[in-house]
Amino acid sequence: MATLSGHLDFDRPTAGKPCATWYEIHGDLSAARPLIVLHGGPGIPHYYLGPIARLATTHQIPVVLYDQLGCGNSTHLPEKNGDAAFWTIQLFLDELDNLIRGLGITEYDLLGHSWGAILASEHAVCQPPGLRRLILFSPPSSMKLWVEAANWLRHQLPRDVQDSLSRCEENGDYESEEYHASVDEFYKRFLCRTQPTPAELAASFEALGKDTTVYMTMNGPSEFNVTGVIKDWTIIDRVHLIARPTLLINGYYDEAQNSVVQPYFDNLKDVTWVKFAESSHMACLEERDRFIRVVGQFLKA
């Protein structure tokens, strides 16, 4: 399937320099309603979501992947590290609107994964006229519930790993090899259970390691200790404003445990919830074929 990539200017005067959003289109935007894909993080580029582009060939659904500002192939702003007034949810909502306008898209479906699901749900509650269907893939509904679920899963780790995490956190050693190794044990169980780590995910994490500006400013040092811009975020009181058919996806071993996803299911009018029994947070990598079938069927319904 032919692909087209490029950059769209994104005017943000407070950035202090010109900014651009990198995008990649799979399929023909004029042939069918496209699916726009929002990656997680914040600040973890799109590479790990690349397999979703298969929808362009399996279901003839054009797919738009892009890197949000501050990561991947889009403009990086390391000089804005720690600038909570700059790195806001609204910044990324404006970037999404700019992408939709810039690509001349009038009708579209939206898939957001993890942090990307925060953006997708915030976009949807505004009831944009072009949005037709919404997919919330391993979505937080509030960061309070997210952190509670992460810490519940943490207690399922081997005792020595739990002790290592606690010891490093007490000493503020978030950048130590010991802490990273212990977090990796959590990730192997509750982020992506496919081993060795899929190349797409390894590429995303390698890119994150080179520039943690967005992640550290908006999230904080770890999944267990969210101290950044989004620490108090919730959409539970506004979910009922989403007026489009919505597909919820999570995995049995997911960081987005049922307790995190349930508020969407309870408050949406037109909703389907599919759980992937062999997956954690990356069903698109852990159960690739089923993921494409489920998403494709929902978008074509």
Rank of each mutant, 00 (worst) to 15 (best):
F224T: 00
E206D: 12
Q60D: 15
A149K: 03
V63H: 01
T234V: 02
D232Q: 15
L111T: 03
F190N: 00
L103N: 08
V226C: 04
I135W: 05
S279Y: 13
A53H: 12
V261M: 05
V63E: 05
T272P: 01
G27L: 01
A15I: 11
Y47W: 14
D254R: 01
G220P: 10
Y108W: 15
E175D: 14
V295I: 08
S164P: 05
R33P: 08
E177C: 06
R167Q: 14
Q60G: 11
P13F: 13
I44C: 03
E170T: 09
A2I: 10
P34E: 00
P45C: 09
V271A: 07
V64E: 04
Q162V: 06
M216Y: 13
E278M: 01
D211T: 08
R12K: 15
C284G: 11
P196V: 00
L208N: 00
S166Y: 13
E148W: 03
E178M: 10
P34M: 10
R159C: 07
E148A: 14
K300S: 07
Y179D: 04
F137E: 12
A149Y: 02
H76T: 12
I105S: 01
E177M: 01
V64A: 06
G70F: 00
S279N: 08
C19G: 04
H155L: 13
M216E: 15
Y48C: 10
N258C: 04
